[in-house]
Amino acid sequence: MSEYKISDNLAVSESGFLFMANSGESFTVNETGRFIINNLKENKSEEEILSLLTNEFDIDIDTAQRDFDEFLTLLRNLKLVEEL
């Protein structure tokens, strides 16, 4: 079960384009960013996401953890995620 909740208003397209229906803001994400957001939307936990990320991409767990934290900070700043 995820510790974070991505807003239901956020639509994520295949191309990495994000549209927030209740605020009218739009965003772009890169491939790894989209990967994390999609998994957060599916209510995966941080641990699960990190394991999926390191399976899919060529990266070690420590770096992945560090970058995940930084990405979460960005999402929080943009008010796209809530802590549960």
Partner: peptide, 14 residues
Amino acid sequence: MTKKRYEKPIILKQ
């Protein structure tokens, strides 16, 4: 299976 090239996740507001 070879893994995909990693790039740090990032999001930018338009």
